[in-house]
């Protein structure tokens, strides 16, 4: 999947992405030199604890960041176009058509006073996926595609009349309405019950396979990431600490944080007592200068040379940003 011959061009290639938030209490260095690549049809997972910069990365790619956020450096080449330097007008054309996103808390993420069928039709009409006549029928078709029973009737429903799981299906229908090349799913199952979670993840996986769509799954749930991602990108405090194919990452984590993260993930045959919390918390990202390795304060393998700029240990398919990786 990531066999990278010299001429290979990935669908999305993010390089040195840095984002700052200018707030009243100082500048927050939310992302620093974030880089990863994604092939057509590939599924990767961005994992890390809350506040590690997963969503900030996604918002920056789509150009829907908070007004306080500034992209200070980096490129994100998507289909030959650097997303970070495109004007809003170009991005608006791409969003919803080539790049789509689904969010957590689906009920709040839908317009509460607009029938869901209309909200899907809005996207279709905007990107020429349908004309005034066919938009309604196409919206119903999309609802059927995300396995909503009785789509004809449901198209007229408002979000408050649907369950959280149904609302997430509607979100997926909206995101996929124009058959995008890339779907970003930001914690799509947070707040849904376990059976619904599984159904939603199956749906996302099936639809992305069917359509050859690349997917970035943003989650703090390593178990979920392991189930559906081809590759996993581990983030910590705005840095990418490790990238590796899923099986390799679990069998052989190289970054101390990754190992801790796996140790904190419940799984089959593991009792609650086996789980270990990661000591410490994320560093305060407002305090410049931040340490070169933002994990060093929590790390049991810290040594004197951890103050030096982070290395990028590139192996065949993986990358580790650590002076003292596990072997």
């Amino acid at each position: 999947m990531t066999d990278a011959p010299v001429t290979h061009i990935p669908l999305l290639s993010v390089e040195e992405l840095s984002v700052e938030f200018r707030t009243r209490n100082g500048t927050v260095f939310a992302l620093e030199d974030v880089g990863f690549a994604l092939d057509k049809g590939e599924t990767i997972a961005l994992v890390g604890e809350s506040g590690s910069g997963k969503s900030v990365t996604a918002f920056a790619l789509l150009g829907i960041s908070d007004p306080a956020a500034k992209v200070t450096k980096g490129r994100a080449v998507f289909g030959g176009l650097d997303l970070l330097s495109q004007p809003e007008k170009v991005l608006r054309e791409l969003r919803g058509r080539e790049l789509s996103m689904i969010f957590q808390n689906p009920r709040a993420a839908l317009n509460p006073i607009r029938p869901i069928g209309k909200q899907i039709a809005d996207i279709l009409l905007r990107h020429g996926g349908a004309t005034g006549q066919t938009a309604k029928a196409k919206a119903v078709e999309m609802l059927a595609a995300v396995r909503i029973p009785d789509p004809e009737r449901r198209a007229k429903a408002y979000p408050f009349e649907l369950s959280g799981g149904m609302c997430q299906r509607v979100m997926i229908a909206m995101a996929l309405a124009c058959s995008p090349a890339l779907l970003i799913a930001d914690e799509p199952t947070t707040g849904l019950d376990v059976t619904t979670q599984a159904a939603i993840m199956d749906l996302i996986r099936d639809l992305s396979r069917e359509r050859g769509m690349a997917t970035i799954l943003i989650t703090h749930d390593l178990g979920l990431a392991a189930e559906i991602a081809d590759r996993i990108v581990v983030m910590h405090a705005g840095h990418i600490v490790e990238t590796a194919p899923t099986a390799q990452l679990f069998a052989n984590p190289r970054h101390p944080y990754t190992r801790r993260l796996i140790g904190a993930t419940p799984g089959e045959g593991r009792s609650l007592a086996d789980l270990t919390a990661i000591p410490g918390g994320l560093p305060d990202l407002r305090k410049a200068p931040l340490p070169a390795c933002r994990y060093s304060a929590r790390c049991e393998r810290r040594a004197a040379d951890c103050e030096a700029p982070l290395p990028r240990l590139v192996a065949a398919h993986s990358l580790t940003a650590c002076h003292h990786p596990l072997s």
């Binding site: 791409l94 969003r95 919803g96 993420a109 839908l110 809005d122 996207i123 905007r126 990107h127 909206m174």
Partner: peptide, 12 residues
């Protein structure tokens, strides 16, 4: 949140 969704959909 839903305004962010609308923007993510590329609406004018």
């Amino acid at each position: 949140d839903f305004i962010r969704t609308a923007k993510a959909g590329g609406l004018r």
